[in-house]
């Protein structure tokens, strides 16, 4: 995949991220800014160095795998403090001291809404692809260890992956989350060929 194709793919993925940002905004009744950083092709072993996160950094992550006409892994992650604040808002609570089981469930559902409900739905609408989303998985751990499941899913038969990193920011509360999209080169080519702007 050459530079121009990667740039085009970035625009395409950016449009799906835009849909995810829209639903995040509705969820919190707040404006959401989104920015897709450069889309890259790399060996999976370089992933951790290419992403704006420290390997040992503790994060809260929601993971959804898309399977069907295209296979991709989408990881939404944010700091524990930001996750606590968002969970409290979702649950209508004033305090955000601890991420309870209910709070974790709320964050997982938020991930489900914006990733499966909006991102993958936008992808399906624009390509006609059937993509089945997995149940959202939630974890709190070191960033690098949470990068493994999407990498394993996408790179099971290839050493090369396409990765796009996007940032979503709730404008008023200045809370940010990162969306990491990982797909294999074959899937990326299919997206390029079949995306029709929805």
């Amino acid at each position: 995949m050459n530079g121009m194709e990667l740039e085009k793919l970035g625009e395409i993925l950016g449009s799906y991220v835009g849909a995810a940002a829209g639903s995040l905004g509705k969820l919190f009744n707040e404006g959401v800014a989104h920015k897709l950083h450069k889309t890259n092709v790399m060996e999976f072993s370089q992933l951790e160095r290419s992403i704006n996160a420290v390997p040992e950094q503790e994060i809260v992550a929601v993971y959804i795998k898309g399977e069907g006409d295209v296979r991709l892994g989408i990881l939404l992650f944010l700091s524990e403090d930001n996750a606590k604040t968002l969970a409290a808002r979702l649950l209508g609570s004033d305090t955000a001291e601890k991420l309870t089981a209910l709070g974790k469930s709320a964050i997982a559902e938020m991930g489900n809404i914006i990733l499966a409900g909006s991102f993958l739905n936008a992808l399906s609408k624009a390509t006609g692809f059937k993509v089945k989303a997995s149940v959202p998985g939630l974890a709190i751990d070191m960033f690098r260890t949470l990068l493994e499941p999407p990498t394993i899913d996408v790179a099971s038969e290839t050493d090369q992956v396409i990765v796009a990193e996007a940032e979503l920011t709730l404008v008023d509360s200045a809370i940010s989350a990162t969306v990491l999209i990982i797909l294999d080169p074959h899937g990326a080519e299919k997206l390029l060929t079949n995306h029709n702007g929805g």
């Binding site: 993971y63 997995s134 149940v135 939630l138 751990d141 260890t145 499941p149």
Partner: peptide, 16 residues
Amino acid sequence: GANMFSHEGSSTVFNI
């Protein structure tokens, strides 16, 4: 060999 994400059992990834 951990099972990193909860909601396990829905996919092979969760018991890899």
